[in-house]
């Protein structure tokens, strides 16, 4: 088991920040944590890395207790850029992390090239832009090719080119067997990275979270809408008719080919087929519309 979080509860002052968070990851994958500000994403990361205490629950990472500091040879946590030392250079940071990880110096150049930050390796952090800081944080996080990578808002402050590069690196790491848990408000980017999304609200992971979801939704315009609906319902297809008089269904349980064949068998003409990707954003809006972000 890569991650086991069991009924995690965390109270801060009078508020319960985490109210029984529970999830498991048993094979390398990219998991997105999505939720409004204050939903407990960062707190969850901090508890998992022993930065914060919690009231009850259990955390095991890579089959070890979460308090075992040797875990950090295999786990990296990309946090916000306040962890950087303003008076030191990017090289100083990477040199320190690599020496703690007992890595050769060549890894520093290697990771800097991979992230694309060779140009400003010897610059002090106080002269860094937000994007440059994110690059450094990423470089520090992946220098040891971790088995588990926790990322709290890594895309913040990145320009499109850097964001694309980061996505490429994350997908490469995933290919190499790294499990990535990423929190982000950039839902388009999440959609491009993963099909597994845990939605967090009020300190809980919602049951409606998307686990390996199929990302398509179909809208069929037919010549006999009522008859088409009746036939599909009769055959136990979970479809509905939307306001635009289209047959609407997603591909979780229903194949487009099957539906079209069935309708054709009953001489119903499918005039138009529209395929829309169900995005994290759409599901997010379904779940959180009307929720005030703090």
């Amino acid at each position: 088991m890569i991650v086991q979080v069991d009924n995690l509860k965390k109270k801060y002052k009078k508020d319960w920040i985490l109210q029984g968070v529970q999830f498991e990851i048993d094979h390398p994958q990219i998991v997105a944590l999505v939720g409004p500000n204050g939903s407990g994403k960062t707190t969850l990361f901090n508890c998992m890395t022993n930065l914060l205490s919690f009231n009850s629950g259990r955390i095991k990472l890579l089959e070890k207790d979460y308090t075992d500091t040797s875990l950090f040879y295999d786990i990296a946590y990309l946090q916000d850029n306040r962890i950087l030392y303003e008076n030191l250079t990017a090289y100083d940071h990477l040199k320190f992390v690599s020496s703690v990880m007992k890595l050769p110096n060549s890894k520093i150049i290697e990771v800097a090239e991979r992230v694309g930050m060779q140009r400003y390796l010897k610059k002090r952090i106080q002269k860094f832009s937000l994007g440059m800081k994110q690059h450094l944080l990423l470089a520090m996080a992946i220098i040891n090719s971790p088995k588990l990578l926790l990322m709290d808002e890594p895309i913040n402050g990145l320009d499109p080119t850097s964001a694309i590069n980061m996505r490429k690196i994350l997908l490469e790491l995933h290919e190499e067997g790294t499990t990535i848990i990423i929190s982000s408000h950039n839902l388009d980017e999440i959609d491009r990275l993963t099909n597994t999304i845990y939605f967090m609200k009020d300190g809980r992971i919602l049951e409606e979270s998307l686990k390996d979801y199929n990302t398509k939704k179909y809208f069929l315009t037919v010549n006999q809408i009522d008859q088409a609906k009746a036939i599909l319902e009769e055959n136990a297809y979970p479809v509905k008719v939307n306001e635009e008089e289209q047959i609407e269904f997603d591909d979780n349980h229903t194949s487009l080919q099957e539906v079209i064949s069935l309708l054709n068998q009953h001489n119903i003409l499918v005039e138009d087929t529209e395929i829309i990707r169900i995005g994290a954003e759409k599901r997010y809006l379904e779940l959180f519309e009307g929720t005030n972000s703090e």
Partner: peptide, 15 residues
């Protein structure tokens, strides 16, 4: 104050 201690706490170093 700066939270930079979090970097040290998330490296394989005993407290």
């Amino acid at each position: 104050e700066n939270n930079s201690i979090r970097l040290l706490f998330t490296l394989p170093l005993s407290r």
